[in-house]
């Protein structure tokens, strides 16, 4: 079975790589939807309900892009991808954009033919353990067995951390996140490690949520953001500015609720954002109201965060993902 997937992967690399530098935007407009690569189910980021609807902050990026292009945030088709499949899917042209808690690293940016279009969640890697283990710090984990997922930065960070702290460990790496959770839950490992956001999200899948705790240490920088193929600057710009639109809108206090009342106002910055002044939509290759459409249909960055992450059962606080003007590091270049 694996060999078949690999062959198909290889074949599609050969075949599709022929036309991937064609303008992605034209292709997307042609087929009428954005093909968006997401996770196979990570609550709060990209997750589907029993009706098959996708939601989460990563999904909102896909919807924002669709709103900018089609004035229809529902014009998205989703491709669920495991950590190890995601880059090949993007390189081969199977998806137009990857919005799936993916860490921006030097290798991925420079050697994989990819471009990171910004950061929609600043994260860091953490550890989760059973409370009855009596561990209070990651530095007490010498000799532990650690469950994680293949093809992630996590796999490398954990090696670095234990090596630099002179601690022994065994890493058990699964292909799918559900198997990591199941294995950790059935006692295969002492520790479950991934991005902290992932820990909070996956924790709700455990049998007894209250029996586990996340350790205080954050051992890495994990800036997560949407990714596109290298070599198509128009598409790169559109994805990048769809994200920046949401952040700028929050900063200016424009929400999906109050956007109507903000129209035809006096503030020139707001006018530019809503497309009442300037040619920003034209320069991006979409309609002048692109950003207004995003905010009206998807909401601003803060709304998206609040809707998916700051609610039960995740209850993730804004932390560093607060706007720069409020003590965080989320910062978007101005629309002007």
């Amino acid at each position: 079975m694996k060999t078949i997937t690999s062959t198909v992967m290889l074949a599609s690399l050969f075949a599709v790589s022929a036309n991937t530098s064609a303008a992605t935007l034209d292709e997307v407009v042609g087929k009428g939807h954005v093909q968006c690569g997401v996770s196979q189910g990570l609550p709060g980021f990209s997750n589907f309900d029993d009706k098959g609807n996708w939601s989460g902050v990563d999904v909102d990026i896909c919807r924002a892009i669709a709103a900018a292009i089609f004035n229809d945030s529902e014009a998205v088709k989703y491709t669920p991808l495991s950590s190890k499949e995601r880059f090949t899917a993007l390189q081969s042209g199977e998806i137009d954009v990857l919005s799936r808690n993916t860490t921006w690293t030097a290798t991925r940016d420079t050697a994989l033919g990819l471009n990171f279009a910004g950061v929609n969640y600043y994260d860091g890697q953490g550890f989760m353990v059973r409370k009855d283990l009596g561990v209070n710090s990651a530095l007490e984990l010498d000799g532990a067995a650690i469950c994680t997922q293949t093809g992630t930065t996590t796999e490398l960070n954990v090696a670095d951390y234990f090596r630099s702290n002179d601690m022994a460990y065994t890493v058990v790496a699964y292909e799918k996140s559900d198997e990591v959770v199941a294995a950790y839950d059935s006692g295969r490992c002492d520790v479950y490690t991934t991005d902290q956001s992932g820990l909070y999200a996956q924790r709700i899948k455990l049998k007894d949520v209250s029996a586990h705790k996340v350790l205080p240490e954050v051992i890495s920088k994990e800036p997560l953001g949407p990714v596109v193929r290298q070599g198509d600057d128009q598409w790169f710009n559109l994805v990048k500015w769809s994200l920046y639109c949401m952040i700028n809108a929050e900063e200016m206090g424009i929400t999906s609720q109050n956007i109507k009342s903000k129209m035809n106002g006096k503030d020139p910055a707001v006018k530019r954002l809503l497309g009442e002044e300037g040619a920003f939509g034209e320069n991006l290759g979409v309609s002048p109201t692109w950003c207004g459409n995003i905010v009206a249909q998807v909401g601003n960055y803060g709304e998206s965060f609040a809707r998916h992450l700051s609610v039960d059962p995740l209850n993730i606080s804004r932390g560093v993902n607060e706007l720069w003007s409020k003590g965080g590091i989320q910062y978007a270049p101005p629309i002007r």
Partner: peptide, 10 residues
């Protein structure tokens, strides 16, 4: 799995 993902050389 891992090596492909770290190097990207599918």
């Amino acid at each position: 799995g891992t090596v492909l993902n770290q190097t990207g050389q599918a």
